[in-house]
Design a protein around this nucleic acid. Structure first.
Lengths: 336, 336
DNA sequence: TTGTAAGCGTTATCAT
DNA sequence: ATGATAACGCTTACAA
């Protein structure tokens, strides 16, 4: 039923080794090359990736483990990763761990048992046991590339953006437009990137000698329905903030909705800088000024690096690449 | 380095076959069972999925091919699929084809060459060559389960929701609240589900003897920036619609934003029923009345069915399961 | 450059 | 119930 390398060899009148070599890009005597190619054509031969994997001890699969399938940033990077890595004949074994260290542990175990050739991980929320497991990957010489953040005690490659600096520049932008009372709508601070984004906010305020009212710092998920209340409270007792910096996509949408409900116009009543740029934001009026992450670059760097590591090129190991965000300047910031 | 079934056998003082049988759940003599378990423990043996795959001619991988990673509905179903299928020790080989038949063709080829044991496909936009390729899967006895829609000439299992009926009920709901002028914000009609949703709208209007102004039917993606203009035009020359039915998540968000920009209140000025329920909608005031798809059920049915097919249970083949949507009644519909 | 054959880690057949 | 052994489809020395 299935046609193997042996069938091809027989048909072409050469040895199996010759066919194998042909398939792996070795030079054949011209006459043999033609015969092999013809036999492959005629028999409709497809090489068996699994047999190859067993023999070469490579699964040609890379695990991509992300905190949540429903977060567009993660999926946008994954989309690029898939595109690039498929070009190198790698499959992705994608896993969602729901920001849960216990599930993460399962997934890491799962992918390790599937003999993945490398691991690309977006860490998010991590427990000690996860670190131990990650170290196991490294000890077994399975390359690990972290995206978004380093991990304590894990010596490996990291691709990240400078979140603190991104925040600094966003807040600075507001300050340069003469805003002094700037609120922050952030994610949970325990998550590394949100801690960094908060830090950048504080640094900018400090640099420009602006006081920070702790009441201006909101860090709830709007899905927990607390965000509207929190944003509302920003505007109950004067002096109100004149600008808001929202540090992720959901926060951005939530803030827009909350301001709408409060009958506050953007930017006439409140200026806004949001984070991440996805097409659903295009529906918002006015076009928002946004911090954009270099999604393609993140994916390209991660893919390139893991391929290099898999191929045994450990030249610059461990390598941390810190990328810059860009500001998409549009119409949601008013000069006071 | 790697410990194999042979090492275990040796350590336990039994034959490799015995260990293999143990691993596959066969009964062992009590004494041997203990010895084998002990040996496995002591050596830290992990079975090699790849060798197993080669021998059994099963990759323990199921392809899940979806039109776009950035559409929450697809990812929500995928999330559930992963959860369920991992319970059966299957990996997912996930692919995004960007609603592009040519890319789809590549992906189908790719997953077929990886010897997946089954295929779960959300068809979306399909070309003739894709149908041929799908037939190849079926001819090679690789089970295919379609989600969202059947495909002409492809005799296989389908899990879908009754989109026309969902629309009918949503529009009927508006009509029962005394709305007569109801606009539709839909996706491109060439896509099966949007064709169906449009059909349900027309049927409801016809059933209640209401005229349909073709100008009320909008079918652009808001990301193409046309939606705002389209929705605005609904309200330029009277008589205006008093209600809008938006048939997908992006349309729902886009409509809310457009109404906001037009200073039209929900539901005082315009009633709205949206489609799909994701947490970003929680930020919207008032809580929207929504059509909800049974995401868990879709995933469960698809997973169960493909597992059954892989196991050779073809009892009811081909089987089409049509699920019902539910209406989440909230505060965005006003009784006139 | 090519042929031969061993072996990757399993499963499964056939005896016992 | 278990042991011995031949595959599964491929890669890779080693020899020629």
């Amino acid at each position: 039923m299935t046609v193997t390398i042996r069938d091809v060899a027989e048909r072409a009148g050469v040895a199996v080794g010759t066919v194998s070599r042909y398939l792996n890009g070795y030079q054949l005597r011209e006459k043999n090359r033609v015969k092999v190619e013809q036999a492959i054509q005629e028999l409709g031969f497809k090489e068996n990736v699994i047999a190859k994997s067993l023999k070469r001890n490579r699964s040609m699969t890379i695990a991509v483990v992300i905190p949540n399938y429903l977060t567009l940033f993660f999926m946008a990077v994954t989309k690029m990763l898939e595109q690039i890595l498929e070009g190198y004949s790698y499959s992705l074994l994608l896993c969602d761990f729901d920001h849960d260290p216990t599930i993460l542990q399962d997934k890491l175990r799962f992918v390790k048992d599937r003999f993945v050739d490398g691991l690309i991980l977006f860490p998010s929320n991590i427990a000690e046991k996860n670190l131990v497991m990650l170290q196991e990957f490294l000890n077994d010489a399975i390359p690990v590339v972290l995206i978004e953040q380093p991990l304590p005690g894990i010596e490996t490659d990291v691709i990240m953006v400078d979140n603190a600096h991104a925040s600094f520049r966003a807040v600075e932008q507001l300050i340069l437009h003469n805003h002094r009372r700037i609120a922050l709508v952030n994610g949970k601070e325990e998550v590394y990137v949100f801690g960094e984004r908060l830090r950048g906010y504080r640094e900018a305020m400090r640099t420009y000698n602006l006081p920070v009212d702790e009441g201006w710092i909101v860090s709830e998920w709007f899905s927990e329905a607390g965000e509207y209340t929190a944003i509302k409270s920003l505007f109950t007792s004067p002096p109100h903030p004149t600008a808001i910096y929202a540090t992720h996509l959901h926060a951005t949408i939530g803030t827009v909705m909350a301001l709408h409900k409060l009958h506050l116009r953007i930017p006439e009543d409140v200026s806004l800088i949001g984070f991440d740029s996805f097409d659903m934001l295009d529906a918002i009026e006015p076009p928002l000024t946004l911090v954009e992450q270099p999604i393609e670059q993140i994916a390209t760097d991660a893919a390139t690096l893991i391929i290099r590591r898999i191929r045994g090129d450990d030249d610059d190991f461990p390598h941390t690449i810190t990328l810059n965000t860009t500001m998409l300047m549009r119409d949601s910031v008013l000069t006071l």
